[in-house]
Simulated assay, not measured.
Amino acid sequence: MRYHLDIRIEVPTPTSSGGTRVWEAAWNARTDLTAPDGTVLAPKSRLWASHTGGHQQIGCIYTAQGLEFHHAGVIVGPDLTWNHDRWTGHPERSRDKELRGLPPEQYLRYALNIYRVLLTRGTHTTRIHSADRKTQRYLDTLIRPGSGSPR
């Protein structure tokens, strides 16, 4: 079976052409992820990170906590945004059905902790991308993209 890519992120390129770069990956594969030529890219597994090819897919807080990686990436979803000098939780935008029904202020505490845990998984580098453009602009003021060091 050809792989299913759940996550698609379009990133503006820093060129004068004003184009975008597209990045895609699968989230917690339920079947083996195979390339069009039949090569297994990542095996179906709840413990995706412990298998060869596991880096070809995205985990979540439940499959990544307690693990460390040389290089990690964190996608801040639309459930957590930076607005008017504060973080705002949007439980209705969460992919975690257990947390979707929480009041926004209670959800915010969970979301901040979840992202804190995910942001500490990389031992050498961690890349951060926000699905929300305003939040990404805020994050860019804290961390110079690609530099690995704060401004």
Rank of each mutant, 00 (worst) to 15 (best):
R8H: 13
Y3F: 05
I7P: 01
S17D: 14
E24C: 10
G19Y: 07
S50Q: 11
A42P: 04
G54N: 02
T34Q: 14
T13G: 14
G38F: 03
R30Y: 07
P43K: 06
A29F: 01
P43V: 06
T34L: 04
P12H: 00
I9K: 08
A29R: 08
Y62S: 07
T31G: 06
G53D: 00
A49Y: 01
P12R: 12
V22W: 07
M1T: 10
T31Q: 12
A29T: 09
Q57L: 08
V11M: 13
A26S: 15
R8V: 15
D37W: 02
A26M: 06
W23P: 01
W27S: 03
I61V: 08
P14F: 05
V40F: 02
L5Q: 12
I9L: 12
D37L: 00
E24Y: 00
L41P: 02
S50Y: 00
G54V: 02
I7Y: 07
Y3P: 10
T39F: 11
A26E: 03
H55R: 13
T31V: 11
A42S: 15
V22K: 09
W48Q: 05
Q56S: 12
T52N: 13
S16C: 08
Y62V: 08
G19H: 13
L5P: 05
S45T: 05
R8Q: 14
L33V: 06
L41A: 06
L5S: 11
A26D: 06
C60E: 09
S17K: 15
G53S: 03
P12E: 09
T34F: 04
W23G: 03
S17Y: 14
T34V: 12
M1R: 13
A49T: 05
R46Q: 09
Y62W: 10
